[in-house]
Design a protein around this nucleic acid. Structure first.
Length: 484
RNA sequence: GGCGCCGUAGCCAAGUGGUAAGGCCGCAGACUGCAAAUCUGCCAUUCAUCGGUUCGAUUCCGAUCGGCGCCUCCA
């Protein structure tokens, strides 16, 4: 299958560049996944949704996408939160077990949240856990040692940043301009340079550890992504992505580790998603505006509505999350879903009234299709892609009001809805089925209407509304329904 | 101190050197027994402000104001 050319913003060059892959037709995609010590918040989810959008767009454009997302299951906060209950004398086996119990629980919760926003687990090619790649990390550090880019100090190993001339290329930082923070970890006082970062952390009492050539310890934060990415996707990766906050130091350090080992470019295209604000402010627990997807569900919001709200905005722009925004998203989705139901049904009789002009529905759909995919191919311009869809919906609705669309035209519209839904996952075909008693009520109302007993007819309609069933009387005398 | 981003109608938001997409909300009308859905019309002489370049700038340049990010853990 031929692939559609895709243009993406590249953090390395700070410009939009055509995507060029190592193997034609195949994209290797590495995305930084969650640290599983708590539930994912909506900011995390924005990033994962943007990556899902990227992946779906690539697949719809004809690429085979080999997507690797890591699960970080060893890290400071995980250790902090998992070791507290253990007695001081607990052995390493018990410490690992406690850590695993915590990470398993939140890994599970994480995938549930992803499924809820239509990111299926089986859309990932690899989902490696950091703790399962210790040998690869150790080998990578040894490789860096051999290249003179790593040095051991009291059981820890550090990366010698001065040894890599292009360090800072991603974050566009240079040594002179750096305002060096005063924060130096107590156990990192003996680094050669304050910029050097830890590859391997020496064991401390009360922490789980692994054996290594440098003694017991655990991996530094950045090394897992380099090790797993190179192991599973290769030493040349097409796209690497994450939130903007990961540009420095995480991704900069990944570049240092991977390129310091191989001696060549690791990733060609770095793509970063912007943050989200909540009601105009940075999300934080102290401000009380910190939300998980679970919180939104408790408040009665559909996760798919959240997905739409996020994806209807451009991924490189700050998104201001708000309840008002969710409501707008819900209404927008409803318009598209109503349109789908209309296309799935048969045309109503021609109506009267003002109208712009007759169109060629099939040609009009083709125009929308082209605009839709062009927008996505241009750095994932979802607002523009959706505009193409909505314009089509208005045109087809107007036409259907006067000249009922043919079955073939309705099917063409449905095919386009399926195509766009494969990206946005917001307007799927829904199986329509009603309970017998609901059907009986609709029939009773039909009879009441026929008898012009409006009071009873309205009473039944209200009763159904209370049950979550909304009615729409059609021109041909039938009554359509939908769930609220 | 260094690097960088953003400011488009009530809200969200795309966009281009040639005169402002789309969505939500709102108003009026059509249709309807009434609704719902849908359609029609209205809803930024204007793109933070001030200069400059240009035949022409929201779009390029400069300055100013305002908001924000990174340089330290963070999606």
């Amino acid at each position: 299958m031929a692939t559609r050319p895709i243009r993406l913003f590249n953090t390395l060059s700070r410009t939009i560049e055509p995507l060029e892959t190592v193997t034609p037709g195949v994209v290797t995609l590495y995305t930084c996944g969650p640290t599983v010590y708590n539930y994912a918040h909506i900011g995390n989810l924005r990033t994962f949704l943007f990556q899902d959008l990227l992946k779906r767009t690539l697949r719809a454009s004809g690429f085979e996408v080999r997507h690797c997302m890591n699960i970080t299951d060893v890290e400071d906060k995980i250790i902090r939160d998992s070791q507290g209950e253990l007695p001081l004398e607990a052995d390493n086996t018990a410490r690992h077990a406690a850590m695993k119990a915590l990470t398993e629980r939140y890994t599970q919760a994480f995938f549930e949240d992803l499924e809820a926003v239509a990111i299926p687990q089986n859309s990932f090619t690899f989902l490696p856990r950091a703790t399962q790649y210790l040998p690869q990390m150790i080998q990578l550090i040894e490789r860096l040692e051999k290249n003179g880019l790593a040095y051991a100090r009291e059981g820890s190993v550090y990366y010698r940043v001065a040894g890599l001339p292009h360090y800072g290329c991603l974050a566009h930082l240079d040594r002179e301009g750096m305002k060096l923070g005063a924060s130096v970890d107590a156990d990192e006082y003996d680094r050669e340079s304050i910029s050097d970062f830890v590859l391997w952390k020496a064991h401390k009492p009360g922490e789980p550890y692994w054996e290594s050539p440098w003694g017991p310890g655990r991996p530094g934060w950045h090394i897992e992504c380099s090790a797993m990415g190179m192991e599973l996707l290769g030493e040349r990766v097409d796209i690497h992505s994450g939130g903007v906050d990961l540009i420095f130091p995480h991704h900069e350090n990944e570049i240092a580790q991977s390129e310091g080992a191989t001696g060549h470019t690791w990733v060609t295209h770095w793509v970063h998603g912007e943050f989200l604000l909540v009601e105009g402010e940075k999300m934080s627990k102290s401000l009380g505006n910190f939300y998980t997807l679970r919180d939104l569900r408790t408040m009665g919001h559909d996760p798919i509505t959240f997905r739409y709200a996020i994806q209807s905005n451009h991924y490189r722009k700050l998104y201001n999350f708000s309840v008002e925004g969710l409501k707008a998203a819900k209404n927008s989705l409803e318009r598209l879903r109503t349109f789908r139901r209309r296309m799935e049904g048969e045309g109503e009789s021609a109506g009267q009234g003002p109208w712009k002009e007759a169109i060629d529905p099939l040609a009009r759909i083709e125009t929308a299709r082209e605009a839709f995919w062009n927008a996505l191919a241009d750095d994932l311009n979802t607002p523009e892609a959706l505009a193409a869809l909505f314009t089509l919906v208005t045109d087809l609705n107007a036409q259907d009001d006067r000249i009922a669309l043919t079955r073939a035209e309705r099917d063409a519209a449905l095919a386009f809805l399926d195509e766009t839904n494969a990206i946005f996952a917001g307007w799927p075909h829904e199986e329509a089925s009603l309970d017998a008693d609901v059907e009986a009520l609709i029939e009773a109302r039909r009879a009441a209407k026929a008898a012009k007993n409006w009071a009873q007819s309205d009473q039944i309609r209200d009763q159904l509304k209370a049950m979550g069933i909304l009615l729409e009387d059609r021109k041909d005398g039938t009554t359509a329904w939908k769930r609220a």
